[in-house]
């Protein structure tokens, strides 16, 4: 039976169709199964802490596992410091805008099939996911943030810090295996 999850922000109820909540190995398998994933890393990743590390540390590990990555806000330097050269530096609106185009990809290697947001502040991310939900039906979206995003195709439910850390570590481990 599917989990019933309330959006993290109580008022953020867009409609009757909301994201499928996913956690545990399912998240890792979703990412692993994607042929052309795209990771979008936002400015909140420089502030969000989990397991004694910053969220950007986890994002960097995902990027190193081979997911093309877009650095939004001012996260480029932090990714670079962690050994990651993102495929692009863009605003989150710019990358989301282009993703509405079914032929667009960040690296010119063919359209993406899974767009993963991580560390973009909750309200802004919710709006970007809404754009893709309505106007990029060719895409699936996943939020790897701790809080349930109803506008995504898949989202983590509202997790405790240790559950979130475990979920991210699972994804990283599976991608690197």
């Amino acid at each position: 039976m599917a989990m019933t999850v309330k959006p993290w922000q109580w008022g953020n109820v867009p409609g009757h169709e909301m994201a499928t909540p996913v956690k545990g190995d399912v998240v890792a398998k979703l990412v692993k199964a994607a042929k052309r994933p795209l990771l979008i890393v936002g400015g909140a990743s420089l502030k969000e802490k989990l397991g004694g590390k910053l969220l950007i540390d986890f994002a960097a590990e995902l990027a190193k596992a081979g997911i093309p990555t877009v650095a939004t806000a001012h996260v480029y330097k932090a990714l670079k410091d962690r050994g990651v050269e993102p495929a692009a530096i863009m605003t989150v609106a710019d990358v989301t805008n282009r993703l509405q185009d079914p032929n667009w990809s960040v690296d010119g290697k063919g359209p993406h099939d899974l767009v993963i947001y991580m560390g973009v502040s909750y309200q802004l991310q919710s709006q970007m996911l809404s754009t893709l939900k309505h106007f990029a039906t060719h895409l699936r979206t996943l939020s790897l943030d701790r809080y349930f995003h109803p506008n995504a195709t898949y989202s983590m439910p509202n997790l405790k810090e240790d559950e979130w850390e475990q979920a991210l570590n699972n994804v990283i481990a599976l991608l690197k295996s």
């Binding site: 867009p14 409609g15 009757h16 169709e17 609106a93 989301t96 805008n97 709006q127 970007m128 809404s130 754009t131 939900k133 309505h134 106007f135």
Partner: peptide, 20 residues
């Protein structure tokens, strides 16, 4: 570039209409 806040239009008595 649109980022809808809500999937519905609620402005008339036919509504709510799901526009998603």
């Amino acid at each position: 570039f649109y980022a809808p806040f809500c999937d519905y239009c609620c402005l008339c008595t036919y509504g709510k209409c799901d526009l998603s």
